[in-house]
Design a protein around this nucleic acid. Structure first.
Length: 558
RNA sequence: UGGGGCGUCGUCUAAUGGUAGGACAUCAGACUUUGACUCUGAGUAUCCAGGUUCGAGCCCUGGCGCCCCAGCCA
């Protein structure tokens, strides 16, 4: 099964490899997350890249958990990651793997290196090791344990595994070059002693492989052809090459690309975890988070995420993508697939004084203006309506094409033109009701006398309206780059990132909206029923607003 | 200032020695029973300085700027 080929430098490499038969025509990629947090949009780029490459080139794709540090990992994260990869469409077939499944094999490889005199057990503690490592300008110095005999190293390694030494007391190190300009090559740690319960291997091991030791082995064992990773691992490539060459095993090609950065958010798992733990958000899937689960809950579709990732491309250039690009991708996708509905977020009562009391008309409304196959639904009309407070101004400027005292607008779907005759205010001077007249001859949307109206607004029949809570989300941070030096990112949280409207009025068709399924509230934005939504207690999330050129005009005139 | 990487419109991204193109954003207009969608048009870029060449974003030299690396994290 193949799909249209992506166009970027990694596909170019794959093309070349296919042409030269470098991997006998195979393309085999993988997504290798550590289960220490939820996946975010940056990971979606990696998934789309890796799975996209496999799919487009008739290859295979593995999902492999890099679970080499039991202290930080958890089954909850494994579950969420699997769900997210599947939701994105990443098809790993039966190729769900865990680094921990290879622990025994990795240990055997380590023994092999020890026997070759290429690895040794070191008694230096963490602080001493740091001192021996040197600095950027200064070469490191050899560990006093660097020249232990093979026999002694073998014995010590066996006893490390057997649990004879305390946590941190010893490490197994590769014997490479303490003077290397590349600090990763200054005798890196391969095994450390950690007595922590592992979510899969339990208490079987008390030594755990370091990422640098394990990662290349995992790709080798799985016969990955193209080991795609982010730029910061380029410095590690010589180390992986060294391990694989010394071992004489299958050697994938590592290719680095620039990770995805988005403005107005943070992307580090550490910071996201802190936002969750400190309750700045309601959880990993709070729709304001940049996580995949949050995006899903908010109403983003996998297709929108794929489109977004295709649009931003794959390069080696560090860049920051404007969230507007993501919002645009969501609008684009939802614009095609979301059925149209009418919903009033901030209700303002309208009474049509010349419309018969008790009369109800039913209109057949199109579910999508450009796609008749999406069908129609019935919408009730009556003497009392709700319109959005934003569609009325007591003293509107000339360019405001909506309702104001004496002004006439058309009502969407019904077509009726209504004119505002009177404004009812409460004791505080707030507008609470509009008295309007309706021109019955304009039913359907055209005036027999040929007069035009500039605006068409949405509405909901008051006696038929369904109540709902609507959650409006905005960017989580007020700063483009909350990571930027100088301030604590938590001081840059947007206090208005969540606005809850408790009293929205929806057309009845919305009462049975399926969770997460996108709908367009006409003239307002794309929404979906939230996980919290229940019959009789509806909750909707705003996925993304519609573009709003009036907002621009209004902002400018201020 | 050791090692590695990267500099193209505001933001992403093409152009692999031959007209600097596209997307998003912006501005102007058309259309509109969504101030949406769609359509039309406009402006805006090769980090700098030399060199090679008929011709350089691309090759060479020298600068400048940004990112990554001194975890027993990944």
């Amino acid at each position: 099964m193949t799909s249209p080929k992506p166009s970027h430098f990694i596909q170019d490499i794959v093309d070349e490899d296919l042409k030269t038969q470098r991997w006998q025509g195979r393309v085999h990629t993988r997504f290798p997350p550590e289960p220490n947090g939820y996946l975010h949009i940056g990971h979606s780029k990696s998934i789309c890249l890796n799975f996209g490459l496999a799919r487009a080139n008739g290859g295979l794709f593995n999902l492999r958990f890099d679970d080499t540090n039991p202290a930080k990992e958890d089954q909850e994260y494994v579950d969420s990651i699997i769900a997210d990869v599947k939701w994105l469409g990443g098809d790993f077939g039966d190729r769900l793997f865990f680094a921990s499944d290879y622990f025994e094999q990795m240990y055997a490889f380590a023994v092999q290196l020890v026997k070759k005199g290429k690895a040794y057990v070191c008694d230096l503690n963490a602080e001493q090791m740091r001192e021996h490592r040197g600095t950027f300008e200064k070469p490191g110095i050899d560990s006093p344990f660097r020249n232990r005999t093979v026999e002694e190293n073998l014995d010590l390694l066996g006893r490390m595994r057997a649990g004879e030494f305390a946590d941190g007391a010893k490490t197994l190190r590769a014997k490479i070059d303490m003077a290397s300009g590349n600090i990763n090559l200054r005798d890196p740690v391969m095994y450390r002693i950690i007595r922590a319960h592992h979510h899969r291997t339990g208490d079987k091991w008390c030594i755990y492989p370091s990422y640098d030791w394990a990662h290349g082995l995992e790709d080798s064992l799985e016969k990955i052809t193209h080991s795609i990773c982010t730029l910061e691992f380029e410095n590690h490539r010589p180390l992986y090459d060294w391990f694989l060459n010394e071992l004489g095993v299958y050697h994938p090609q590592q290719i680095e690309f620039a990770r995805l950065n988005l403005n107005y958010t943070v992307m580090s798992k550490r910071k996201l975890l802190a936002l969750v733990n400190e309750k700045h958000v309601r959880g990993w899937d709070d729709p304001r988070m940049p996580t995949i689960s949050a995006l899903r809950r908010r109403g983003c579709t996998p297709e929108a995420l794929w489109k977004f990732n295709e649009e931003v491309g794959v390069t080696r250039i560090n860049s920051v993508i404007d969230v507007g690009r993501l919002e645009n991708a969501m609008r684009d996708d939802l614009g095609k697939r979301a059925p149209r509905r009418m919903a009033v977020l901030k209700p303002l009562k309208v009474v049509l004084e010349n419309y018969p009391e008790g009369q109800v008309e039913e209109f057949e409304a199109s579910n999508h203006p450009e796609d008749a196959s999406m069908g129609t639904r019935k919408v009730q009309f009556s003497r009392e309506l709700y319109i959005d407070a934003d569609d009325f101004m007591v003293d509107p400027p000339k360019k405001f094409f909506r309702l104001g005292p004496g002004r006439e607008v058309r009502l969407k779907v019904a077509g009726y033109f209504i004119t505002c005759k009177d404004v009812v205010k409460n004791a505080a001077g707030e507008v609470v009701e509009l008295i309007c007249t309706v021109d019955l001859a304009t039913k359907g949307g055209e005036a027999p006398d040929g007069r035009k109206v500039k605006g068409t607004i949405h509405w909901v029949s008051a006696p038929h309206a369904v109540n709902a809570e609507v959650r409006l989300f905005d960017r989580l941070f007020v700063a483009e780059n909350p990571d930027a030096e100088g301030k604590d990112y938590k001081e840059l949280l947007n206090p208005h990132s969540l606005v809850v409207l408790a009293d929205a009025k929806l057309e009845p068709a919305l009462a049975h909206a399926k969770i997460s399924e996108g709908v367009q509230f006409e003239r307002v934005g794309y929404f979906c029923a939230d996980l919290d939504s229940k019959p009789g207690a509806l909750v909707f999330n705003r996925t993304v607003t519609l573009k709003d050129s009036w907002a621009k005009v209004a902002a400018k005139s201020e």
